[in-house]
């Protein structure tokens, strides 16, 4: 039973190397986008990235998160995936969160495709034995062929993306967190990738996707929130 519950979640980033005096800070507070600025008890400048967010997501929910740049979308995704512990309020997550955000994270361009499968796979929480059994499947899906034995730097950008995508989508996630819908590779691969992604999204218990596209929300989501300067404005 998967469940995500955010209760008055606030996220304040302390900015220690900001030398901005009060006046500039006040000036910045007028800015139309970005989090609000303020100061915490110790007098440090803080950026209030999220403010009093309440959310209750249950099995079957597909949440689209809309908002301008700097509205707090990515921060919200990171709070849900456990990267940031809220500075105020609380969060409860039941189920394993998989984030398909930076697919290339941890890849090494000097290492071969196979080494990268182990490396990326380990970061995604797969063990070596499981990965060994999946190498062929991953290689086939990515359409890498014999290049899998070659260093990643010999790959084209498209090939790298295809490999990264194939590794990341090997396993069905329980809770899936995405920043925009993924599109990778050329026309042919894109079709294959879209099919797999749609399938994963369909089977995932809870989906949270940040996007700029209301059309995408319309298409895959059954719930929508809009963030503005760190606050939740519509649900």
């Amino acid at each position: 039973m998967t469940h995500i519950f955010l209760n008055n979640v606030c996220v304040d980033f302390p900015i220690y190397n900001s030398t901005t005096g009060r006046s500039l800070k006040n000036h910045l507070m007028q800015a139309a986008t970005g989090g609000r600025m303020g100061s915490n008890e110790q007098g440090h400048v803080v950026v209030k990235a999220l403010h009093d967010i309440c959310l209750d997501l249950k099995e079957g929910d597909r949440l689209g998160v809309l908002g301008h740049n700097g509205a707090g979308k990515s921060t919200l995704l990171r709070v849900i995936s456990g990267v940031y512990a809220p500075t105020g309020g609380s969060i409860e997550v039941q189920g394993k969160v998989t984030s398909l955000i930076d697919l290339n994270l941890g890849m090494d361009s000097e290492a071969t495709g196979i080494e990268n499968i182990y490396l990326r796979g380990a970061l995604l929480g797969f063990n070596r034995r499981w990965l060994s059994a999946k190498i062929k499947e991953i290689t086939d899906f990515a359409g890498i062929g014999d290049f899998i034995e070659m260093p990643l730097r010999t790959y084209s950008t498209g090939m790298q993306m295809r490999l990264a995508f194939s590794i990341a989508t090997m396993q069905q996630p329980e809770i899936l967190v995405m920043d925009e819908w993924l599109t990778v590779g050329d026309a042919e691969f894109q079709e294959k990738a879209q099919q797999r992604l749609s399938e994963i999204v369909k089977k995932t218990s809870i989906l949270v996707i940040a996007t700029h596209s209301p059309a995408l929300v319309e298409q895959v989501c059954n719930r929508m929130i809009r963030l503005e300067r760190g606050a939740l404005i519509t649900e």
Partner: peptide, 20 residues
């Protein structure tokens, strides 16, 4: 418990430093 990941990353660092 997840020592395997630290192991993979640690080896990777060595490999990366001395590749080729």
């Amino acid at each position: 418990k997840g020592y395997e990941l630290a192991g993979v990353l640690g080896w990777q660092d060595i490999r990366q430093r001395y590749r080729r």
